[in-house]
Every structure is written in C-alpha cells, then in structure tokens.
C-alpha cells in the first residue's frame, strides 16, 4: 500500500521541482532589449543635383526620388533636367547617430551599351568609364545651413540606380 503512495509523492515532488525551476529561470531572464533614439537638434535639408537628364520609366522607377526612413521626401515622375538643383527642406525625424538617405535616379536612356555592375560586360576594377562619369548625382545634406555630407553617386549603368548616403549626427548611434 505504501509503495504506490510513495511513487505518487516522488512523482509530484519531481513535477513541483521542475515547475519551480521553470519559474525561477523565467524570473532571472534579462529584460528585453529596448533601443532609445534621441532626436537630433537643428534643421536638416537635402540638396540634389544630377549631371544628366532623368526621366521616370514605365516600370515604376521615378526620375528622381529621395527617401529617408519610411518617408518619401521628394519624388518626381516627370523629367528632371541635368543641373537642376532640387532641395528638400526641414527633413523630419533625424536622430542622433547614423541616418541614411536613399537617393534614386533613372537616367534618360542613352545610346550605347550599358556598363557597370548589372551589365553583360564586367566593369574594369576601380574604373567607372567615360559613359559613367557623365552620370553622377551630387547629394549634399545640410544641418542648420552647414554641409554635413557632400557625396557623388555614380551611375555605372544606363538603367535606374540608387545609393544610400549616410550622415552621423552627434555622438553614439543609439543607446539601450
């Protein structure tokens, strides 16, 4: 008679121990990681100028688009002439640390074979070629009127292209 009772008691003890162990490990689990991003001080503007004519195409590529986080800051479907300066003022939601802007352009199709990363001909290492040099986008990012980033984006291809432009504002990227 005592053996079944003993077996039940031992089984219950084991179950209780396992349950308490699970409770304990749950209690000592670290708090979930939270990322805190601090807003950057000042007014931020983006200035873009292309050395080539841009035009949107039928496949949804805009002539020129500037994007920051999940906002499209500017988008032009119709043509943008070479040399036209486009300025986006007062970009919202810029944070302390790193911030990326995406600048995308679609060159008006030119005669001649495409060159660059997505062409049939392998690009020569480190060379952009004469055709590519003619297709550059200058991107300037200004904080309170002062240039904090000035980059040239090169198009190696006759098709649409885009690059991320990164700026660092203040100190650390983020805090936890």
């Amino acid at each position: 008679m005592i053996r079944p009772v003993l077996a039940v008691l031992i089984a219950a003890s084991i179950l209780l121990f396992v349950w308490q162990y699970a409770e304990f490990t749950d209690r000592i689990r670290p708090a979930p990681v939270r990322i805190v991003e601090d807003a950057a001080a000042g007014q931020f503007d983006v200035r873009v100028v292309c050395t080539f004519d841009c035009a949107g195409n039928d496949f949804g590529s805009p002539a020129l688009r500037v994007r920051f986080r999940d906002r499209v800051l500017m988008e032009r479907q119709e043509s943008v002439a070479a040399g036209e300066v486009i300025t986006v003022r007062n970009v919202p939601d810029v944070k302390q640390g790193f911030n990326d802007f995406l600048v995308q352009a679609t060159p008006l199709e030119t005669a001649g074979a495409a060159t660059g990363a997505f062409s049939l001909e392998a690009p020569a290492p480190g060379s952009r070629g004469e055709t590519a040099i003619a297709r550059a986008v200058r991107v300037e990012i200004l904080q309170d009127g002062f240039v904090v980033a000035d980059e040239l984006l090169w198009s190696g291809s006759s098709g649409p292209f885009g690059e991320l432009v990164r700026i660092q504002v203040g100190g650390a990227g983020h805090s936890h």
Binding site: R67, F118, P160
Partner: peptide, 28 residues
Amino acid sequence: RAALYLGQLNALDLWIKNQVVQIPAGRR
C-alpha cells in the same frame, strides 16, 4: 536571357535599398 535577368537584379538591388532605408541606421 542573361541581359534580361541582370535588369531584374538591378531592380532587386534598388528595391532592397528602398526597403532597408526604412530601418533606422542605428538599428541596422
């Protein structure tokens, strides 16, 4: 066929850039 596919890869590259820019750079 390869030229057509390379065009698709170019479109993929642009699409990825449009997606990843939505993630704050500090969280990337």
